[in-house]
Nucleic acid binder design. Structure first.
Lengths: 356, 356
DNA sequence: CTGAAAGCGCTTACAG
DNA sequence: CTGAAAGCGCTTACAG
């Protein structure tokens, strides 16, 4: 394969020689909090600068058993929610002086294929977004002292932490909102069937509808994919008893559903059809869509994720922690409005039936 | 900071002991092509499996001087073009058994702040997407034997390779297309002024218009940002002499421009205003937008990028290589059609005046 | 094919 | 505060 030549690169020993000090002194200069006199430090810094020295993080990792690398496994980047998450994660990890090793692919199955790779790099922690891990591997991480956090998914498994929003309550609130909007027939376009987010949103929605006396729910599956959501919308909207209101399990699919409804079936939104989504992702805010949607507080979700990781890395205690944050039902133009319950917060219209 | 405890983890020596062979034998078992008898290999593999051994990539990197890590510096993930690139890069690098260390942020300035970090990890190569590097740092990479590839940008600098499409020709073709479509007044909504892509697209557009006898170009700047593109569109479209056709420097901005045109100014597209974009990114294909746009062959761009990197890593020769690929003008519904020149290829309509 | 040994570039007790 | 030394977990000549 690669028979390439590598340039040597300057080492701490070379710097030590140049500065007339020991190699230990050079190391201490670059170790925050290490015991070193200002004078020695200055000499070392000067030599380091002159020679263009940079500590070798690989060598440091080897001896400290800390790579300062967090593996992020993420698929499904076509859903803008995840690029946003990634960008925020990059920022948050950089602030903690950690680095982000990215593994893409593998949305619908467990992330086992990449697992071997990431373990070889002795990552200090693992973030799984829109994907999960088999239980054996989760156990292995716990045994190896490597914290794992599921982002926007959750699990019963002992060793794995998670950060989510109140998906169930979200589904329920959407049901309340649609019922208050005067709709009497309902549809659901589902995400991946084995994902906890889809399950929770669905269950909350069903529960909310039932509490209002509605059990006539029509369901099709979009598997969180644009293409499949389009197909699901075609089927659902071609029914003679087409529902008046549809909750689409995320905004990424809701955009597709709206396009199909408007341009293939000529439906006016929201006059003839109400659409509600989930996530509050970029396109939901674009005027063409204006999707009424349950928001997920992305920044706080990322903060929590990094928090959990840093805690467990510092303590060495791997025990599952589940953080559940709250979003809001952001009201825009894709669904008919209820008579009351809409309040304004920070320039956004949100649905809060209790407060109004 | 972190006083955490790390579990020991099983090493090649432990496996050697367990299998009753030397540590070298264990190492050879996990080094493709190394000299090892099938019998020894089997013993080692059995022990490794039993103990849950995985070679330590960090230790390997230290001794081979190859981290098998490629740094990717990428900002501007809100433009779906880049998440798509990232996903494809992940795949392509994984196929070569390389890993992807991601640095986000820093769209509009050079990526110097992250440079130190990435050099400390002794990455084997650097990919810069939607960002660039100062010339001193480029030189430093070359001196250290680390190849650098600019993705979707180019530069005159000696040491840095690049992968782009024919932006200039793209701008020119768009001009021809709009003139052929019968427009007589033209606008340009610019990207970042210091980016080579923006400069080349602009110059090609101006040149193409001039060749057709038009010099009355109106220009506003969107800096590749959605917000600024909206503002630019408002200004341009409120002019009494509003142009009939606008080339927006990328699709990400074109979407914003279309929303402003339709919903704030009530313009019909393409009857009253033609819009052409660049990239052929996801939303360009959504029915709500249907943007006529110059495509960029993302997969081939990624392949070329990884190609250049692998070549230079293998040879140890860092010399700038510039690959320039071709896209097509994909014709959709956001711009008025010329009488002729539109052909069908692979189910897509493209503009190729020569062939028609 | 195999093992003993050197060494990659660091950190960190240890002794002074 | 400082230096000599051990050692992190590997790869790879070297000699057999």
């Amino acid at each position: 394969m690669d028979s390439g030549v590598k340039k040597p690169g300057v080492t701490s020993s070379r710097v030590a020689e140049h500065a007339g000090v020991s190699q230990s002194a050079v190391s201490r200069t670059f170790t925050p909090g290490a015991s070193i006199s200002p004078k020695t430090r200055q000499k070392v810094l000067a030599s380091a600068k002159e020679l263009g020295y940079r500590p070798n993080a690989i060598a440091r990792s080897l001896i400290t058993s800390r790579s300062r690398i967090i593996a992020v496994v993420m698929a499904y980047l076509e859903n803008l929610f995840y690029p946003d998450v990634l960008e925020e994660l990059g920022r948050a990890l950089a602030a903690e002086n950690y680095h982000l090793l990215l593994f893409t692919g593998f949305m619908d199955r467990d992330s086992d294929p990449v697992f071997d790779q990431l373990m070889q790099y002795r990552v200090d922690g693992i973030i799984l977004a829109s994907t999960s891990l088999s239980s054996e591997l989760s156990e292995e991480c716990a045994a190896a002292g490597i914290p794992v956090v599921l982002f926007n998914r959750t699990t019963e498994r002992d060793a794995v932490s998670s950060v989510t929003t109140r998906n169930r309550e979200g589904g329920k609130r959407i049901a309340d909102f649609l019922v208050a909007g005067g709709h009497t027939s309902f549809g659901y376009i589902a995400g991946l069937e084995n994902s906890s987010t889809n399950r929770d949103r669905y269950e909350g929605y069903v529960e909310g509808l039932a509490a209002n006396g509605y059990t006539n729910l029509v369901v099709e599956t979009g598997n969180y994919s644009r293409k499949e959501a389009e197909a699901a919308a075609r089927v659902m909207l071609s029914r003679p008893d087409r529902p008046e209101a549809i909750f689409v399990a995320n905004d990424h699919m809701a955009v597709a559903v709206m396009d199909v409804a408007r341009y293939e079936l000529g439906l006016n939104i929201p006059e003839e059809l109400s659409i509600v989504g989930f996530d509050d992702v970029g396109p939901a805010r674009w005027t063409s869509y204006g999707i009424t949607t349950m928001s997920q507080p992305l920044k706080r979700m990322v903060e929590s994720t990094v928090d959990i990781l840093m805690d467990q890395i510092a303590s060495g205690e791997i025990e599952a922690e589940h953080r559940i944050l709250s979003g809001e039902l952001i009201v825009r133009t894709s669904a008919r409005l209820p008579q009351s319950g809409i309040v304004e917060r920070d320039g956004q219209r949100i649905y809060r039936p209790r407060e109004a």
